[in-house]
Design a protein around this nucleic acid. Structure first.
Length: 514
RNA sequence: GUCCCCAUCGUCUAGACGGCCUAGGACACCGCGCUUUCAAUGCGGCAACACGGGUUCGAAUCCCGUUGGGGACGCCA
């Protein structure tokens, strides 16, 4: 997508905005952190870091019904896990607090009072039922549902009387005539007729503030320079700009991000599989892979051909100008590829801590730390990690080094087929005999013994190595034997909850069951 | 119904000023090589400018329309 000329103009002609950039991520703690929201958080963070600005975390918990403390905790935890650190906000210091909307009610009341005093807002005595009824009628007549403006111009005496009688009322913004517009940093100039907007409710009848009002007041007080958020808010923006105007304030810059969709082109939801950070974490995705993938969803680096980028590189390259308007479809296959790439370039040593939980959960290593086991595990991980998309698949792959489940041992069909052949079995038995003599195996002795078997049986190449592999591992394929063998031998000497058999034990078990 | 937004391979995308685009890269898929096997890896292949009109010597790129998709129209956020 080519960017609009004015955008280019704006981005290049604007003076250095460094140090003035203040952005915020403002989630509501009403559920688990969704990848769509993570991307919003990520883009805010990248923009802040790129411009040496400030990244603020604000919690929008004005929906008392649905907000919960456990979601807020999870939220902070998820952001930290992803490495999206914030400079001001909940859980941090900051001069523009409090950063939880439920702690800011007094502020909203003040601003509301001001708007009322200046006649920029008015009291509306219509009941919810009444309004709902009108809306339904309008919809039935295929008309645009809109507030009638019934209470817009009530006589002051009338208003006084109703207040005295204790009638409940909401506070609505008096929307002015004319057009409202703004230049979105992603979408460009968007203008509409103000008349399309019904006088928005600022304060509910219970005096609690509404989202649009809080949002404006907070962004104003927190000196937000750029509002980067989901494109669902595109139509809220005009409403909010009207509120900024009424408050006599200058609105910040806006940048709206397109939605992330599922493979079927519908909004990403539960039925598309994992959608929350929590789930990705549990499946063993690496945060750096998730961050890298999400950054590429709707944004692209200026240079082609390099997609594996560290957070530092992305920060350096990030630019709102290169953000796509189209909604992007979340592609699990590509995320898996990216995660695999990160897993493979991370040494086993560094993976141990992150994978430990999965191995403990599978009953493969003890719960208590043991350096010898860690060391061995690191090598097991290095050996099998080329096969996995995410860390939770590691224990399954590590099965290759653990003991056979049952007696008789579980031998794969492929291995069984190989060993059924008399000559192949002879190779395996000769190899086993030599191992019995030697006691245990090392990569060197393995090579020696293989050479001896070759001489004794006259078999070579795959006819030699296949039977040995089958007898040793019970499978027809797998990692290199030279690397596997020391792990068998060393594993058998470790104190593991599930036994690892030595080479000799494995050969006995397999050949004994034939 | 009214308003707003979007539209390049199956997916993510490159594409500023219209010519360098017989449209490039990545994922996925297919084939080949390497390897005692599998995986990894290397190389190669398949595959797109939604449609219709303009403007222009020339359009993926500019304009209009059509179609398709998304969003908003709350005392939700």
């Amino acid at each position: 997508m080519r960017q609009d000329a004015w955008r280019h103009k704006f981005m290049t002609e604007s003076p250095d905005i460094s140090n003035q950039v203040r952005v915020r991520f403002a989630p509501s703690p009403t559920g688990y952190l969704h990848v769509g929201n993570v991307r919003t958080a990520l883009f805010n963070w990248l923009f802040a870091r790129h411009h040496n600005g400030t990244f603020i975390l604000r919690i929008e918990d004005t929906d008392a019904e649905r907000s919960a403390a456990k979601y807020e905790r999870q939220l902070l935890d998820d952001l930290e896990w992803l490495g999206l650190d914030w400079d001001e906000g909940v859980g941090r210091d900051g001069s523009c607090g409090p950063y939880r909307q439920s702690d800011r009610y007094a502020v909203y009341q003040q601003y509301a009072r001001r708007l009322l005093d200046e006649d920029k807002a008015f009291r509306c005595f219509c009941s919810e039922e009444e309004l709902e009824k009108v809306r339904r009628e309008q919809l039935a007549r295929k008309e645009t549902p809109r507030y009638s403006g019934k209470c817009r111009n009530l006589a002051p005496a009338e208003v006084e009387a109703r207040i005295r009688s204790g009638a409940p009322f909401t506070l609505r913004l008096r929307v002015r005539p004319g057009t409202v517009g703004f230049s979105d940093l992603v979408f460009g100039r968007i203008e509409i007729e103000a008349a399309q907007i019904s006088d928005p409710v600022l304060l509910r009848s219970d005096k609690s503030p509404t989202y649009n009002f809080c949002c404006v007041v907070d962004d104003l007080m927190m000196k937000i320079s750029h509002v980067i958020r989901g494109d669902g808010h595109l139509s809220n923006t005009h409403r909010q700009i009207l509120i900024y105007e009424a408050l006599g304030a200058r609105a910040p810059q806006f940048a709206h991000l397109s939605t992330i969709l599922g493979p079927d082109g519908q909004k990403l939801s539960k039925r598309h599989g994992a959608t929350s950070v929590e789930e990705f974490r549990r499946q063993g995705y690496l945060p750096e892979a998730l961050v890298n993938y999400l950054a590429l969803l709707g944004w692209s680096p200026p240079a082609e051909g390099q997609e594996i980028l560290s957070a530092e590189e992305i920060i350096r390259l990030f630019d709102l100008e290169r953000v796509q308007k189209n909604p992007a479809i979340f592609d699990n296959a590509k995320l898996d590829w990216m995660n695999r790439t990160y897993i493979n370039k991370t040494p086993g040593r560094a993976l141990v801590d992150r994978a430990r939980g999965f191995f403990i959960g599978a009953g493969l290593i003890p719960d208590s730390p043991d350096p010898a086991i860690d060391d061995w595990l690191a090598r097991v991980i290095d050996l099998v990690k080329t096969h996995v998309d995410h860390l939770d698949q590691l224990p399954g792959e590590a099965d290759i080094v653990y003991g056979f489940e049952s007696d008789p041992p579980q031998i794969g069909a492929e291995a069984l087929e190989i060993l059924q052949e008399p000559e192949a079995q002879a190779v395996a038995r000769e190899f086993a005999r030599l191992v019995e003599e030697k006691g245990n195996l090392s990569p060197e002795t393995y090579r020696e013994l293989a050479a001896q078997v070759k001489e004794a049986t006259g078999r070579k190449g795959r006819n030699l190595f296949h039977p040995i592999r089958a007898a040793l591992t019970g499978r027809g394929s797998g990692p290199e034997l030279e690397k596997l063998i020391p792990l068998y031998e060393e594993g058998s000497r470790l104190n593991l909850p599930r036994k690892v058999m030595s080479c000799r034990e494995r050969l006995r078990a397999v050949l004994g069951s034939l």
